[in-house]
Design a binder for these strands. Structure first.
Lengths: 146, 146
DNA sequence: GCACAAACTTAGGTAAGCCTAACTTTTTTT
DNA sequence: AAAAAAAGTTAGGCTTACCTAAGTTTGTGC
């Protein structure tokens, strides 16, 4: 399946691409590099699929890849990856404020993060900081859903 | 594409299935019936694709379909469709409170609605009613994003 | 430095969900 | 009621993103 979509994502910005870039940046930040095997394990997909996608991301200028060697994000790739990561964090924070179970948060954020446009993200960002400033509003959520 | 996904949706609950059911219920509610051609126009896909999906939904017990004739939602199908519709409305309401542009709202809701679990939905529901009760909190959003 | 293991790549294949083109059935028009 | 139009169906294809199996390259242990 997972094919599906009405409005095409901007060339080379499918949800799959976003997931890869996000994970690659995370690996680089934590381990200093991102190998095929790590990306594969981390995303729970085969190494073959990773190789394939990495070659595509190279062709699209998101990263520089040398066969059997390794990869580095380009400026464009890193910028994009950072934005994706920031969106992920913001959404996670927002749902955390609502007192949701960490597993539910992870699941939902992973699903919806690819569909939040910049204006919506900004609004949620503002809302999140408002809520943090008035914790009284959140009492209703404290013993919340799991 | 859209083929993608880590955790499989419960058999017969892909985002495509949800979109079809949602639209079918909407058509039934407004016109009294849902024909292939209307579903196709409304979802901006071909009639052939609709025929195909309807046969699948029939096989899965979501609706009763008679070739060349018409369809009716089963109890299961209608219940599911109502839940999907409610989730859509709730998310739309929430984003409306944040002052977002209607087109942005439509786009984002259509993308993310399929990925919101019940607990998260309940939390957003509670939050929405809190915000409605304290409009002061929303002043920051009034001249919001477009 | 050679053998083995781990990492990586290639080739070929699958499933979902969409498409177009061609055909069939139903409905409308006259 | 026959012809034309509209609706619906079938067949065959495409793309994305995944997979497995088999082969290649790199790295490790002795």
């Amino acid at each position: 399946m997972p094919a599906r979509r009405k409005s095409r994502p901007a060339l080379g910005r499918s949800t799959a691409v976003e997931d890869y870039l996000e994970r690659i940046l995370e690996l680089i930040n934590t381990k200093g590099y991102a190998r095929v095997v790590d990306i594969a394990t981390s995303l729970k997909i085969s190494q073959a699929s990773v190789t394939n996608m990495i070659q595509r991301l190279d062709a699209e200028g998101m990263l520089k890849y040398e066969k059997y060697r390794g990869l580095v994000l380009t400026t464009a790739g890193e910028t994009l990856a950072r934005n994706i990561a920031r969106r992920h964090e913001l959404l996670t924070e927002f749902l955390q404020l609502l007192g949701l179970d960490p597993r539910v948060i992870e699941h939902d954020v992973e699903g919806m993060e690819h569909h939040i446009s910049p204006p919506t993200l900004r609004a949620i960002e503002t809302l999140t900081s408002q809520l943090r400033r008035r914790p009284a509003l959140l009492t209703k959520f404290s013993r919340a859903a799991a």
